[in-house]
Simulated scan of single mutants.
Amino acid sequence: MSSTEDLRLGEPHEGRFLVVKSDRLTRICAALLKAAGASEDEAQAVATGCVNANLAGHDSHGVIAIPGYIDSLKAGDIVPGAEWTIVRESPTTAVIDGNWGFGFHVNAKAMALVIEKAKIANVAACTVFRQSHVGRLAAYPLMAVSAGMIGFAVAGSGSFPDCVAPFGGREARLGTNPISIGVPSNLQAPFLLDMATSAAAAGKLEVAIARREKIPEGWLIDAEGRPTTNPHDYLKGGVLLPLGGPEGYKGSGLAAIVELLCGLLPDPGFGPQPSGRENLGCFMAVFNVAAFCPLNKFKQEVAEFARYLKSATPSEGSPGVFYPGEIGYLRAQERMANGIEIEKATWDKLRTLARNYRLAGELDLA
């Protein structure tokens, strides 16, 4: 598929999107990251994580982030090949210093360690600090699900610039601070919660800007504290609102707890760093289902519960009930078959990077 063949014309986004197959997109992003200094493993982990986010419909955490990661590499804010350090450890816990490595890579290794601990101790947890952006948080609980365990992960903003106002405020004091929980089941799609504690992920504003679209009401207030549907107001001092609308104290409270788990618990992982680098923290926990009840019985009962949820009569104008994780799975199946829509603005950035690294011909991005 050539770059011209990727162009998809038609309403309502005529000329503003390109449709690219996921395997091609992964190859392009991995090659660009490797050219920027990432190792083969790191480049593949980040590229795969970003494309998987696109597949599930989390475009805010997809390939739109690749140019930013490369900028961070150039600035020295991400250290390729960084060796993580276990600062503190017990049979059931670990505190991990990522030493400014790729969050995708560090966090995956941390979750793998916690899963191994849970195989012996049944319950295990870790904190990770001094790492870069971890991508779509759901990737890590899903690792636990594959091992027959319940996975839990939260990510705080650390020293990353705050972008969310606490409930009742108009100045940023919190991050988007996502929460993700994955549960083993016999369902075709994973039973998976994956949500920001803000009204929307900050990356969704970047996507809206790239697509020249308005955002829904309730996501953002401008620098004067007024509601706005213009994503550009975010770049002019606007802030995201917490999840919950009129009951935004719920999202605000959740975000504050996430910040404590990810920022204060892995002491000294919170606050500005001498290097000026962004310090993003995570807290992850794993629960071995077999320690509580037979795994197969639990998986079957989770599936029955999901079907019970879906049996509810649809409300007016609703397509019906979807259990957590189902929509992302269905979207991924569709995008695997038909390709991923990439904003032309993002594609142009990837093309420019390919030219700068003299990979345009090899990657068919001339």
Rank of each mutant, 00 (worst) to 15 (best):
D222V: 02
P268Y: 05
C262N: 05
E341T: 09
A312P: 10
S180V: 06
Y69S: 03
G76M: 11
D77S: 11
A36S: 10
F102E: 06
A125D: 05
G10R: 08
S3M: 15
W219K: 04
A110D: 03
G271I: 10
S159K: 04
N107P: 01
A124V: 09
R226C: 05
L73A: 06
F160E: 01
R136T: 00
P141W: 05
S157F: 08
A124H: 11
Y323N: 10
S132M: 05
N177F: 00
G203T: 01
R335H: 07
N52V: 01
S185L: 06
P294G: 11
S60C: 09
A210P: 02
V114L: 09
D348S: 13
K34M: 10
N54D: 10
D97H: 14
L280M: 15
P67K: 03
F152W: 14
D162P: 11
V258W: 01
Y308N: 14
A153S: 15
D41M: 01
A147F: 07
F322Y: 15
N177L: 04
G151C: 07
A312M: 13
T197C: 07
Q131W: 02
L280N: 10
S132K: 04
A223M: 01
G101F: 07
G276N: 12
P67L: 03
A35T: 08
P178W: 04
R8D: 09
G339N: 12
A223N: 01
L309W: 15
S318E: 12
A285M: 15
A56P: 01
A56R: 10
K204W: 00
P227R: 08
L235C: 12
T346Q: 09
S60E: 08
P227Q: 11
E301L: 10
G339Y: 12
K204V: 00
S60L: 06
A112Y: 04
V134I: 14
R351I: 03
E326Y: 11
I78F: 03
I209A: 00
T346A: 08
K74R: 15
V46C: 13
I150H: 07
A45S: 13
A94M: 12
E334A: 08
A290F: 08
K236V: 07
L350K: 07
R307T: 13
D41K: 01
Q188L: 14
L254V: 03
I340V: 15
G238C: 02
E5A: 15
G169L: 07
R170V: 09
Q188A: 15
C262E: 01
R335T: 04
Q273G: 10
Q131F: 00
Y357A: 09
N99E: 14
T26K: 15
P184G: 07
F292G: 14
L18V: 14
L9A: 10
A112H: 09
T85R: 14
I78A: 05
P91C: 13
G263Q: 06
E334Q: 10
G269S: 08
P67E: 02
I181R: 02
D348F: 08
L205E: 00
A165G: 09
S198L: 00
G81C: 11
K204R: 04
L193S: 09
A112I: 03
A110G: 05
Y249H: 12
E247P: 00
A303Y: 12
R277H: 13
D194V: 06
P231W: 02
P184S: 09
A303N: 11
D71P: 04
S318V: 09
T85Y: 09
S185F: 07
P231N: 13
L25H: 11
E224W: 02
I340D: 11
N279F: 02
A139Q: 07
